[in-house]
Design a protein around this nucleic acid. Structure first.
Lengths: 361, 361
DNA sequence: TTGTAGGCGTTATCAG
DNA sequence: CTGATAACGCCTACAA
């Protein structure tokens, strides 16, 4: 009978069930369950028999059924606010790294920036009873919190933040990263700084500029706001800005750039004006986007956001939250400086030259 | 009694269940189910009452339970063979596009190129009873098929392929893409071709080179294998190769590049030799990696792999397979040509010049 | 039109 | 030690 039934079943679902295993092993359902889960005390011989039968049949417990009874799904949702770009790659792999080791599967949800689509994804995640949610974006700016109703579910904002102090946000430490770059340039003997960066409505842009001013102040290095140029996150802006800057201010000997792309444009612009990097002007980028930073000639000294680490941390924290802890607030992951050739120490001849220029001015 | 029970439940799971809804609406469980699923015939008034109660309680059907009884999970797995890079971004968003519209959630699985990790992910996907799997990679080369045992589950290989003719593989049409670029260059009046490309073990490299030869042959344009230079997928290789090529062969008036990155290196190399693009030599790239292609001066004419479309197609085909169809074989998605400034028509003066050079040679 | 009962695959509790 | 039995939340005949 049972065999007949099996034969008439579609080949599509030959998935053996626990009761198949029990039957094959000649034990009761519940016994088989215990044997496979290592629960309770069974005669080793019985356990063996069940294990053997399970292997024979290629049995796999149905996670859906398990989740139902356990009240945990071992899945989490990854809600990407934006049609995600290059930043999310290391971020996502970091998150996965942390989660996969804990046997947790990740639902990928791109909202393409549409609130309706976000809600749709959210509904679906809740219906699937995810154990937690990580929200990410393509920028660190503040965003509206996701709406979970009155449901208390672990949520982490990674590479984005919300105003609510009761939630956990994980962000790169843009200030510390900027400090790294600027102090490095100062150590190379540079004193005449400029900053070419992205749109001011990016919080990262504001933080980096602010910290640059602070560091320069600490070193008593004069600085004027005319030397901060904000534009698009594009090479062409870097190129254009370099020209604007040098027309105004030929004394510059260091440019702290807001991205590697911008830095590349800057280097190109300088080269065309016959200005040498790093001899005449030292350059630093931001992001350590390798394919970009290493292709520039000379290769860029730049700040690495450590997004993979940031993702891993987000995953780890989420696991802790699922485990019952409730960390809150803003956690910043430190950046690191990757030194390449674009920021070497100022050569003597140039120091002389710039002094001369100063006198002329 | 029921109320007492509810009150003592942890706030963590205030998720109302169907029976809560039924109770609130004063109907039986099954009635509530029917009302919510639009099944059977109920008095509109009853249905209203149930719907109202459901909304009031913020009821969400538990997908886990639904999947269990329906035998479908409305989830699919996305198995990325490699620590995925820039190519997978449009691919993945395309896949999501197609799937999200069908109310299907996507499990993200990066295997980081490790077979054990792949198997681990696969086991997990099967345990979660996904309705299908899409396998992708960072290159279109052939790979080993995933091992599903004797389980018949819809699988699609996207941007990668397997030798088995009984499975469905979706790939970009590299040959057609190469033809697009080469015919375009020919139309611009170019006759002296070179090809600077990536490693020969990439199947795409072979296909593109092969088609280039074919197209040139069709137009009776002579070509020699010395003018094919294979190297790394890097700007620096393009730069180096441009110099090698022109030392050998100054007559070249068109370079068909295997990637935008390489093309950028080539353009840089040419510029430094005082060769004008496109006046002296026309260049085409491959990939239409916008941030790269548009930053080059002049901006690159290039071939777009239409990976977003490819992803969408993969998602659509998977839905069809889940629906019972079993398409097999290799399906190629056409590329398109994006014309920018790097490939303009040859200027008259140059044609003259190259004729002179030809006589000299 | 509505309610009852059985089952999806597992786990957990409690008798035997 | 082992095996019924009751959940988990939902769906769907079938009966009322």
């Amino acid at each position: 009978m049972a065999q007949d039934k099996e034969n008439t079943e579609r080949i599509l679902r030959p998935l053996p069930t626990l009761s198949d295993v029990a039957q094959a092993a000649g034990v009761a359902l519940s016994t088989a369950s215990k044997a496979l889960n290592g629960q309770g005390k069974l005669r080793p011989e019985t356990r063996e028999r069940v294990l053997e039968a399970a292997k024979q049949l290629g049995f796999r417990p149905n996670d859906l059924a398990q989740s139902l009874v356990r009240g945990r799904s071992f899945t989490v949702g990854l809600l990407s606010t934006d049609n995600y770009g290059r930043f999310s790659i290391p971020l996502v792999t970091g998150i996965e790294d942390a989660l996969v080791n804990a046997q947790i599967s990740v639902f990928l949800c791109n909202t393409l920036g549409s609130p309706e689509r976000e809600q749709q994804h959210l509904d679906s995640l809740l219906a699937k009873h995810v154990d937690g949610i990580i929200v990410t974006s393509d920028r660190t700016n503040s965003r509206a919190p996701i709406d979970l109703g009155k449901l208390d579910l672990p949520v982490i904002y990674a590479y984005t933040r919300v105003e609510d102090p009761n939630v956990l946000c994980i962000l790169p430490d843009d200030e510390q990263g900027a400090r790294l770059a600027v102090e490095h340039l100062i150590k190379q003997g540079r004193r005449h700084f400029a900053h070419i960066t992205g749109p001011v409505y990016f919080e990262a842009v504001q933080l980096r500029a602010k910290e640059m001013r602070a560091v320069l102040g600490e070193h008593d290095i004069p600085f004027t706001e005319r030397r901060v140029l904000s534009g698009a996150w594009e090479e062409s802006w870097g190129y254009e800005a370099a020209n604007i800057l040098l027309d105004r201010d030929p004394l510059i000997d260091a440019i702290f750039c807001g991205s590697d792309q911008i830095a590349r444009g800057v280097v190109d612009g300088l080269r065309e004006r016959g200005i040498r990097v790093p001899e005449d002007i030292a350059i630093t980028g931001f992001d350590n986007w390798e394919v970009m930073a290493t292709a520039v000639r000379p290769p860029l000294t730049t700040v690495d956001l450590n997004l993979h680490e940031l993702g891993k941390l987000a995953g780890t924290r989420l696991l802790q939250m699922i485990d019952g802890q409730r960390p809150t607030g803003i956690e910043r992951v430190p950046c690191s400086l990757v030194v390449r050739e674009s920021s070497a120490a100022q050569s003597k001849s140039i120091q002389t030259k710039s002094k001369i220029q100063q006198r002329e001015a």
